[in-house]
Each structure stands twice: as structure tokens, then as C-alpha cells.
């Protein structure tokens, strides 16, 4: 909008600039530094150029974990977004139950990540966990520590349990912002509930859903603690997502160069995909 001549305003922004510098820019630069050098951790560096990047991009291991990451992310998006919208639609919009429902919904979001992992680990254990024991008792051959399929099932279920609430809350916020007149007009126009959803609720939720998709996309791409605690990437490498793999390389094998290169590639992928998502979802808005 309109700019005013007030140089003091910059002073107020300064703390944030410094914070962001310490918080993001400086560590990122360190990583960039590592990614183009060879080091053994004793503070001696040799110039390596783009070797690590070439290595990473050509390695089957990276391709495999990136592939797993993609499957994971798109699976949870495909489940959490529609499920979240569906739950939001069923929540009451007025009345004494509103705060109760919202608090219940928000509960999973309040649990620390490692606790979530540990909880589900125990919950899913085939011998003592309620889920694992129950499934086996029902006749399913379920063991998430041995069978990759079961591990995936548990991993996705855990994420859905943990994060669908976020989508619900965002979608709900979008829903309650729709004025009553829209529903009344639709009723008068003889619209059925699907038409109301399609032409009123969905368009009005679009902005918040864009945010929900972006948040869930980025978060799920960066997910580490929960799968690490739950499966540790196993059985075998079957649930080794990008971040888990990254830590294995960097800390487990102390290959700082390749790990740094991989982090940067990882970072760029997230940036790129987020941008693609955002542009696609906002494109209609501009028309």
C-alpha cells in the first residue's frame, strides 16, 4: 500500500533479521561449505567441488529413500486432506459442543513427536500392544517390526492420527468464516448438500486448504522423530525416509560432505515442490 517516511521502522525489524541470520542463514551456509569440501572432522578441509552432489544424485540409495519419501508424503496427503475436510464438515458450527470438539481434536497435536513414536511403537507391538495384539487376535498376521507392509501401514496410520487434526482445524476455520447467507441462498436455490459442498464450502476453504497442504507436505517431507522411534527405518531399509537416511549418513557414517550435499538437495526439493504446489493451487485465484 502506501509507504510512509519512517526510518525508525527498520529498528523494529532488526531483531528478527538477526534472529533469522543466526537461526537459518548461518547454519545453511555452513552446510553449503561442507557440501563442497572433503573433511574428516578434524578441521582439515579439501576442496571437492560438485563431487558430492554428483555422488548423491547418482546413488541408488538416495533414489530409493527419495522414492519412499514421495510415497509416504503423497499417501498421507491423500488420506489426511479429504479425511480432515470430512471431519471438519461434521463438527458442530455453533453451540456448547464446539469448544469440546476443538480441544479433543487438538489433543494429538500437543503430544511431543518422540512420545508419539514411542506410543505407537508400544501400541503396535504384536505381543503386548493393543493394536498389534488385537489385529493378530482378529486373525491378521501383523508384525510391523518384521513385515515391511505392516511397518508402512503403522507409519501412515500414526501420521494420520497425529496430523489429521491440523487439517481439521484449518478446514474448520475456513468453514466457520462462511456467512450464513451463503447457506440460506443455497437452500433457497434448491441446492443439495453435495452442491453446497462443491460450490460454497470447497471454494471458501480453498485458501486454508492450500495452507494445510503446504504445511503437511513440508512437515511430512521433514518427518524424522516419529518413524525413527517407531521403526528406526526398518525392517531393513523399507521405511527409511530421506531424513532418516540423511542422519544415518551424517552421524552414523560421519560422511559430512555427502550428507551436506544431500541436505541441500533435500532442501531444494522441498522448496521446489512447495512452490509448484503453491502456484498450482493459487493459479485459479488469479483468473
Amino acid at each position: 500500500m502506501n509507504k510512509t517516511e519512517n526510518q525508525k521502522a527498520w529498528l523494529f525489524v532488526l531483531p528478527v533479521v538477526l534472529l533469522v541470520a543466526f537461526n537459518a542463514v548461518i547454519p545453511l551456509m555452513t552446510v553449503v561449505n561442507y557440501s563442497v569440501q572433503e573433511t574428516f572432522g578434524d578441521n582439515t578441509f579439501f576442496w571437492a567441488g560438485v563431487i558430492w552432489f554428483q555422488d548423491v544424485l547418482n546413488s541408488d540409495r538416495f533414489h530409493a529413500s527419495l522414492g519412499r519419501q514421495m510415497i509416504f508424503t503423497f499417501s498421507i496427503l491423500a488420506i489426511e486432506i479429504p479425511l480432515g475436510v470430512l471431519i471438519a464438515l461434521t463438527l458442530p458450527r455453533k453451540g456448547p459442543w464446539v469448544p469440546v470438539c476443538l480441544v479433543l481434536m487438538a489433543l494429538p497435536l500437543l503430544i511431543p513427536y518422540n512420545v508419539v513414536g514411542a506410543m505407537w511403537n508400544i501400541f503396535a507391538l504384536p505381543d503386548i500392544g493393543l493394536l498389534g495384539y488385537g489385529l493378530n487376535a482378529l486373525g491378521f498376521d501383523y508384525n510391523f517390526t518384521r513385515q515391511p507392509g505392516d511397518a508402512w501401514f503403522t507409519l501412515i496410520l500414526m501420521d494420520v492420527w497425529h496430523w489429521t487434526s491440523l487439517v481439521v482445524l484449518l478446514a474448520y476455520a475456513g468453514l466457520v468464516s462462511i456467512p450464513d447467507a451463503y447457506y440460506q441462498a443455497a437452500k433457497i436455490d434448491g441446492a443439495k448438500s453435495f452442491a453446497i459442498f462443491r460450490y460454497i464450502q470447497l471454494p471458501k476453504m480453498k485458501r486454508v486448504l492450500t495452507i494445510a497442504v503446504l504445511l503437511r507436505f513440508m512437515d511430512s517431507f521433514m518427518i524424522y522423530t516419529e518413524p525413527f522411534v517407531l521403526t528406526g527405518g526398518g525392517p531393513g531399509n523399507s521405511t527409511t525416509l530421506l531424513s532418516v537416511d540423511l542422519v544415518k549418513i551424517a552421524l552414523g557414517q560421519f560422511d559430512l560432505g555427502p550428507a551436506a550435499a544431500m541436505s541441500l538437495i533435500y532442501f531444494l526439493i522441498i522448496l521446489l515442490l512447495s512452490w509448484v504446489f503453491y502456484t498450482l493451487m493459487m493459479r485459479n485465484e488469479a483468473n
Binding site: A181, Y182, Q184, A185, K187, I188, D189, G190, Y199
Partner: peptide
């Protein structure tokens, strides 16, 4: 309301944003 055969124009304009003007008019 839908069984009373009435129409209403509200204080704040209600249009179906994603539709064209034509589809809006055709909607009912």
C-alpha cells in the same frame, strides 16, 4: 425454505464464486 418457492437477495451479495455469471443464473 426450498419448499416454499421463494427467492431472497441478501445484504451482502451471495454469488457462487467459482461459477460464471451464466452458471450462477442457471444454478437454481
Amino acid at each position: 425454505p426450498d419448499q416454499r418457492h421463494i427467492a431472497q437477495v441478501f445484504q451482502f451479495p451471495v454469488v457462487y464464486d467459482t461459477m460464471t455469471v451464466y452458471d450462477n443464473l442457471a444454478f437454481p
